[in-house]
Structure formats: C-alpha cells, structure tokens
Design a protein around this nucleic acid. Sequence first.
DNA 1: AGGTCTTTATGATAATTATCACAACGTATT
DNA 2: AATACGTTGTGATAATTATCATAAAGACCT
Lengths: 231, 231
Amino acid sequence: MNQRVPKCSCENCQLKTLFFSHVSPDELFDICDIKEERTYRKGDRITSEGEPIHEFLYMKEGLVKLSKSTNEGKEQIISFSKPFDFVSLLSVFSSKTYIYSVTAVEDSVVCILDLSVVKNKAQQNAMFTMDLMTRISSATDKIVIENLEIRRKQLKGRVAHVLLYFSNYIYEKDEFELPVSRREIAEYIGMTTENVIRTLSEFRKDKIIKIFGKDILIADKSRLENISEFG
Amino acid sequence: MNQRVPKCSCENCQLKTLFFSHVSPDELFDICDIKEERTYRKGDRITSEGEPIHEFLYMKEGLVKLSKSTNEGKEQIISFSKPFDFVSLLSVFSSKTYIYSVTAVEDSVVCILDLSVVKNKAQQNAMFTMDLMTRISSATDKIVIENLEIRRKQLKGRVAHVLLYFSNYIYEKDEFELPVSRREIAEYIGMTTENVIRTLSEFRKDKIIKIFGKDILIADKSRLENISEFG
DNA sequence: AGGTCTTTATGATAATTATCACAACGTATT
DNA sequence: AATACGTTGTGATAATTATCATAAAGACCT
C-alpha cells in the first residue's frame, strides 16, 4: 500500500526553495528529520472524505485527484495535483476533517509533515506563513478559475479543454497516456461517461486526435484549441 | 459614487475579533487610523477585472458579487460576499491584478486597507497571518464546495438551491427581496435567463414560492429543499 | 484457462436546456 | 410625454445532453 523512505533528500528538493525560502537551514534540518515520504500506487486512496486532518501533504512525484462524492454516491472530481503542488489546500486550515478525498491516478510520491509541525512553524514564522498563504491561494485560485472555464463550455469544448489541460499543463507533450478513465474525465467536466467517449471518438474520426486505448496523440492542436475556445 | 467616512468605528466592529484577534491594541489603533470606509450604491463597480490590486477589502454592510467576464462578453458570477466576509480572497496574495470584478448588488459599505499595510502586518505577525489564512481558506473552500453543489444539480435543483442560499445563508428569512436580476441568477448557476424565469414561474404555479416582482416568499420550504436535493 | 467485472464503444430514444420570437411592464432619459 | 432600454414573462422549436440497451475488449481474480 505505502512504504517509508527513511532517507531525507531535501537537499535536492525543489520544494525547499518554493516552500521553505524563509526557513533557516537549522529549521529546515528539523523539518527534514520529521518529514515522511510515502509511495502510492495508481488507484491508492491517500486521504478520505470525513477523516480528521492531521497531516500536511505535498506532491513530489506522480499525479493525484481531489474528489468528493455526492450523497447519491456519484463522484465529482475537483482538481488534479502534480509535483510541487500542495495537495493540502482546501480544508487544511479551515476544517478539522477532510471534505474531499485524495487518490493517486498515477504512481505517486507524497511528502508528509505532521500538520501540527506546519502550524507551529506558521505561528512562529510570519514570512513562512506568507509564503504558505501565497502558494495555497494560488492553488485554490487555479481551481476556481479552471472550474469557471469548464462551466462556460459545452460537451465538446469541455473534452477539448481536458485534453489540452493534460497536454499543456500536466505532461507538456502532445502525446501522453491518459492517467484517468473516460468516467473520471466525465466526473471532472460534469458530463456522462458515454458522451465523453462519444466526443473522443468524434475527435478521432475528425483526425484531431489519435487514440490507442489510454494513449492520446493530439494531431491537430490548433483545431482542438478552437473547439475548446468556441465549442 | 463613493464617500469617505472619516470617523473610525472599529471599537464596535465585529471584524475586530474575527480579523484582529492577534493584533495588539496599539497596532489596531494604527490600522484603524488608515482604514477607509467606502459606501457604494447598488450596481456600483467596486473593483474591475485586470486592475492592479492595491487594496484589501472586507464587507461591513450590504452584499456584493464577484464575477468574471468570458472573452465572448458573457458574465459569470463566482460568488456573493456578505458582511464580515473577505471580498479579497482570490488573487490578493497570488496575483498583481484582479482576475474578477466586484460589484455591489445591494447598497454596501466596504472597509478598505492598503494592501501593503496588510502585507507588512502579515510579514511581522505570524498569528495574524495564520488568522488571515484560515479565514481566506474558509472563504475559498466555500466557493469551491458551493460550485460543486450547483454543478451536480440540474435546472430546477439549481434554482431551488439559489433561493435557499439567499433565504438561509444571506437573509435568514423566508421572505426577502431578491438582490439580483433573473439574469444574474442565471449567470450564477450557469443556465439561461429564460429558463430561470420559467422555473421560478413553475415554482409559483406549484405554490412553492410567491413572487411579487423582486420579492420572494418561500411558502413550502421542505418541498423546495427536496427539489434542491433531488431535482 | 475460465469467469467476473470494469472499461470502452456505439446506437436509439428520451429528457433537458438553449435559442428565437414576441409582448408586457417598469425605469430612466431627454 | 415620448422614447429608448432593460427586465420579466411565455411559447414554439432546435440543439444539447442523458438514459437505456447492448456488445466487445481488457483487467483481475482464482
């Protein structure tokens, strides 16, 4: 399920500059000491809705999804987090329990700090807290904006948008392996699985993309962008 | 358009306890000195998309909407802010310019601090920054959750949801004056104006609500809740 | 290797929502 | 008072999306 990696490798960690730029080397060493890395396999649940929050999470490798299930048992995907994103953005400082679940959609490595350590640090070091707030704000802003973007489009535009999201933002390549199922795409864009599949088939027939199972190749990006923008 | 109220009335301000619980009386006096209150009339624009952010805003009286316009010129309403909510939640600590506009939907009083003052305070006082972060996180969480709620419902459920939102959350009464037009409701729930109007008429015909122009009376709340929940 | 379950896929049909057209009403402006 | 303009309101029709049915392919388990 998960496995501890005892050796701390913070010296080479990009997060050091992003997250800890206002933490002294001594403090950093302390944090490094208590930091834990956990490895998750694709499909593993990392945190669950309703669980108490006692850890602070950020992404080192892989890709995870944040999701929430409706009281009818359907799943809604809120967002995806890639390396050097905070996974802990919603709820962490405003709630005692998670209001969403986090699940690995690729094999992932997540760095974990006890939340009380982060909170203590935050109460002592204002610059650290400012950094933290800036980062968390930026991440939640992205979620809100992305949500608005998806909301104003219809089916084809939304599917095109998601493909471009993975291509441009997550993988930075025109060919990639979809980390999620058609159903999960549907849960992200708020449409049905069948319509997502149908739309992908249509894009394939129109030679905008090539599909080999989970592998997607964007063949005509400008047309895909056009669909994403104007439907 | 707007008018200065020179006298500082922080002594009686609810925000003092919420916002400034970790600020010393001396500091509070300083802040009080430079704080400005501005009065806006219904319809007045408070901040505009693309403008540089140099002020920190919070609500004292009234109701405002946060909105963003698409590149096709359509408006999307992100959320509403009521008294003692921060208006400055998205962007403030993550962007130099506003990515949304703020407009008064009721006559409103907004308290305004220079952003540099808030940032300076935040860099010096970690507890203050923690408070701030907690409040901002809580506000953005609400936006995300509210968005998911609306997204999973269809037309009737969304309209019912909005009515309950105003009734329960904003006015805490079963009878209230709608602060927004049908079009604005449509912009908030992502449906067309005509369909919002039609749905309201349907609720009226079914004796779930009474409508007198902008005045709404919720006559059968449990049925409205049922529609909001199950469509 | 066989069976079960999920995912991908496609078609037909039903439900939902948008668009267009038009009218009444209120409000603001000149 | 007259005009213009936005809001509210309703109906007919078109477009979009969901639902249901069915099937093949792949993953998983034993």
